[in-house]
Nucleic acid binder design. Structure first.
Lengths: 190, 190
DNA sequence: CCTCAATCTTACCGGTCAGTATAGTCATCT
DNA sequence: AGATGACTATACTGACCGGTAAGATTGAGG
């Protein structure tokens, strides 16, 4: 069965989040998964491929949760605000260690690196979700609205990982509410 | 003279931002500074100490710029909004590689690590600046207002580093304007 | 019983890295 | 002239890591 592959990805994610990606050795990952290094390399051609697989697994889970959440919130505005609950859950799940994707991009800053590309794909997917919601909510400029929501979500994640408790998401949700309500009613403000 | 120490820190910062911290070797730093590894170790007891020195140098520059900016903006609200220009300038200065401090925290996730502590000190300083500004602006809850500004600033930085152009700061500034104006006029919204 | 695939065991290679040791160079200051 | 301090040059240690090699073990299915 392919249980081994899942255990390897789970173990890798646990170590990546608690120690960092670069510093985590493949032997430690294999040991935590209860297998040998050779077995790891029979499932993944390289450590980089394992990292990308971890990110894609997380991205898959994320998309599932987004779909489930949006199905429960037919109203677009309510759906947008539900994103803050999703982010908050992910922050708590990883013990406030920050966003796995942002951390990965920090450790692999070269834009062309496969890990960096996987991060960009994930964040791009989130932005597209938000833009679609803003579109169906009928705001005047869906692109800007999605951008604003994305800023608030990412900022909450960073702030929450920097010692603030998860209450930051409540603040961010309030700002989003205020911001969305005023969208479409004004053109110039500053 | 202590020119060598500055050159070492500058070189280290350049490499840390373009390649990542962990992956950058001390020999590469020394070579870029035009000195030997031995000279580096006569100025810093360890690589960790050099990293912390880099962060503290950046923090010092940051505080100077903040003081200069706030002196030019006596109005608290105007001062708060000027923070977005400061952040934007820092993002562009590092070629959109993201926030050095956030990246450092990503590479050293252990809360007790000296590098992680230096990051926390820096971000805490920013929050204190924002809280003081919100206080003198007379908003109803300065703590929440500062938290919201911090979220917007950090979110813009992450978003800007994730492929969006630096225009995100304009969006963030608009949201901040909208948010500050509505602060103190309402109690419950969601 | 035999086969096949997944896994295990052990050992190894080539490379990199942080940090140290030692001896030597050079300019400045007294 | 001598001393001091900053820097150079080179080589080394000890450790770790990513990845590979080759053979043994195990267990399920035909």
């Amino acid at each position: 069965m392919d249980n081994t592959r899942e255990r390897l990805i789970d173990s890798a994610l646990k170590l990546f989040l608690s120690q960092g990606i670069y510093i985590t050795g493949v032997m430690a990952i294999a040991a935590l998964a209860g297998v040998t290094k050779m077995t790891l390399y029979s499932h993944f051609p390289s450590k980089d491929a394992l990292i990308v697989a971890c990110l894609e697994e997380r991205d898959r889970l994320w998309r599932e949760e987004v779909a489930r959440t949006l199905a429960a919130h037919p109203d677009p505005v309510s759906g947008m605000l539900a994103f803050f609950d999703l982010y908050q859950r992910y922050l708590l799940r990883d013990s406030g260690r920050g966003c796995l994707f942002v951390n990965s991009a920090a450790e692999f800053p070269q834009f062309s690196h496969p890990v960096h590309l996987a991060v960009r794909r994930h964040k791009q997917g989130i932005r597209e979700n938000l833009a679609a919601l803003a579109m169906s909510a009928g705001v005047s400029d869906p692109g800007v609205a999605a951008e604003g929501l994305f800023i608030l979500l990412e900022g909450s994640f960073v702030s929450g990982a920097m010692g603030q408790d998860a209450r930051v998401f409540d603040t961010a949700r309030q700002i989003a509410h205020c911001w969305i309500r005023n969208q479409g009613q004004q053109e110039q403000s500053a």
